[in-house]
């Protein structure tokens, strides 16, 4: 095997290794995003309900964003050990900062007339939230989800410092052994995974907001 950037032999002989790393990468990303999405909804609702909490939540998210991923993963290590959980907890925290913001601004941008009309028609608070506010805020929420998803796929690579970076592990190992094809292949797969995830989310957004079809996303 020669140490060229592109090497067909590497692709065929290390196929399983590459696919395993890709699968782990996708798994870490998806779990992180789902957990972040589930946590962000109550956080955003609480922030909207009590105004003083909004600045607390948004301020905390700004501070989290300034903590370098390398440090966050290393700092979580004593608590969660050398496990995928370490990476996932870190990624959830970063995604939260994006998702909570998108939810808060998206829900705030729903026109008052629509809300008043729904209230006039007898919608209670819960129905109002799920059937009026949420669907109307969906485009801006989904924009946030896409940013969070793509960033998470990229950031997962840094998980290599604790040994669970998916494709990042291959990149890091390739750096140590100076093995070029491994670094390039893993990097390209990582970008492709991010773009596929982005396209999938765009598709979901289109399906979920049929009234906006024909307009640019």
């Amino acid at each position: 095997m020669r140490n060229e950037w592109i090497c067909g032999e590497y692709l065929t002989s290390r196929r399983t290794e590459l696919l395993d790393a890709l699968a782990l990468h996708a798994q870490i990303t998806v779990i992180s995003l789902v957990v972040a999405a589930l946590v962000s909804v109550p956080l955003a609702l609480v922030a909207r309900r009590w105004r003083w909490l909004e600045s607390v939540v948004l301020g905390a998210s700004t501070i989290i964003y300034t903590v370098p991923s390398l440090a966050l993963f290393s700092l979580l290590l004593p608590f969660t050990g050398l496990s995928p959980t370490t990476v996932i907890v870190g990624l959830v925290l970063y995604s939260l900062t994006i998702l909570v913001r998108a939810l808060v601004t998206g829900l705030a941008a729903v026109p008052d007339q629509v809300v008043e009309a729904a209230q006039g028609m007898g919608y209670g608070p819960t129905r109002l939230l799920w059937q009026v506010r949420f669907p109307l805020a969906l485009p801006s929420i989904m924009a946030g989800v896409r940013v969070a998803a793509v960033s998470t796929v990229a950031l997962t690579t840094v998980g290599a410092v604790v040994g669970y970076g998916g494709l990042g592990d291959l990149i890091y190992a390739g750096l140590r052994s100076l093995f070029k094809p491994q670094v390039l292949t893993a990097s390209v797969l990582c970008v492709v995974l991010a773009l596929v995830v982005d396209l999938l989310l765009l598709g979901i957004q289109r399906l979920a907001t049929p009234w906006r079809r024909g307009r640019p996303a």
């Binding site: 793509v150 990149i171 390739g174 750096l175 670094v183 970008v191």
Partner: peptide, 17 residues
């Protein structure tokens, strides 16, 4: 969008090699 998809760590390692 594409820029966000490219991990900085990957670029860093690629350029180092």
């Amino acid at each position: 969008n594409v820029g966000r998809a490219v991990p900085t760590f990957a670029i860093l390692v690629l350029l180092t090699l």
